[in-house]
Design a binder for these strands. Structure first.
Lengths: 178, 178
DNA sequence: TTCTTACATGTCAGATTAGACATGTCAATA
DNA sequence: TATTGACATGTCTAATCTGACATGTAAGAA
């Protein structure tokens, strides 16, 4: 019985609060959207697997057939085990950056347009993250503080990428002038 | 017939140079490793699909049964079409950052250890990118210049993430002191 | 009362992907 | 001459993942 990354994510969320499958789905759509994506069609079967493995347990049933789950002690131990072992080399898939390798196939004007659009997209995301950061109270609970720390990574990422895209567009203009 | 991102990547590479499946595999392992990953078991069937669609053509056969391919004019047009349309929202999967959401489950010392290891990993990657950047000649050809621009994104990303991890470890120490 | 919308859980088919399995060639070294 | 390692292309199975399909509930508005 080996647990996927999604399984560990569910376990980690259920270690902080008791949640339903629906609430977990929302968490992936909102808080975790910029680090891991999962749809309800993956989440429900994974919850069944985790329950069968004794890592989570069904605590209460609510309206509309909703089922609330909590991590068991074994489930928490599994998360800690995951956090303590070094991360495996991950497969990287960044379409937006991949495209940049092939921008030489467009004319300089179209390439610059692409880079400027990239800069804008990164700045928009940065603005969204900033807005979320401002909503987090200073004396939040432990899990919330760690979301703030993760969010800071997103903020710095978007800022760095917006600056990179600006730099690249400028570098292209300079090369074009010469 | 719709072309996957991998298909577009192969098309883009074959628009710059004629390459064999083996050479394409190496390109994904080395130059493209930090933006898109693909193994030979994906690449060979995808080449067959692209050839069937008339987007690449087989140019010459070499030793050991190697087959060299080039992008056709339709193939190049397909890459441009891809570059000109806005990127679809991508599914993000960042295990290393996902883990940070759950570091509250470790003690402060272990959490700090994780963040320091992250900072080290990012600095190691940064050093590798810097070494590659130093090897790129100043007057390289167009595709090479665009690899340099993409590489710069990697450099800035690793630098930003290393600084973030340092910041997070320090923030944790301060919180711990109080 | 009817309608709409959000809530809530599930399954299924098809595509993508990773990793193993399979086979054979060529060059250099021992 | 035998062996090793890099070169080179392919297939197959199992796991993961996306998007569609399916079904029903509860609350609030019209």
């Amino acid at each position: 019985m080996n647990i996927s990354i999604l399984g560990h994510a569910l376990l980690g969320l259920l270690a902080a609060h008791e949640l339903t499958g629906y609430e977990l789905t929302q968490t992936f759509d909102i808080s975790l959207a910029h680090v891991w994506s999962a749809s309800h069609s993956q989440i429900y079967p994974e919850l069944a697997k985790l329950q069968a493995a004794g890592l989570i347990r069904h605590t209460e049933s609510g309206p509309r057939g909703s089922k609330r789950y909590a991590a068991t002690e074994e489930g928490r131990a599994e998360v800690r085990r995951w956090l303590e072992q070094p991360p495996q080399p991950a497969t990287i898939r960044n379409e937006r950056l991949l495209r940049v390798f092939f921008l030489w196939m467009l004319g300089p004007d179209d390439a610059r347009t692409y880079l400027r659009a990239e800069a804008d997209r990164h700045r928009e995301q940065l603005a969204e993250y900033d807005a979320i950061a401002r909503q987090i109270p200073p004396n939040a609970d432990e899990p919330m503080n760690w979301s703030r720390i993760s969010l800071e990574a997103g903020i710095r990422y978007e800022r760095a990428m917006a600056e990179w895209a600006d730099w690249a567009a400028a570098a292209l203009r300079d090369a074009d002038d010469r």
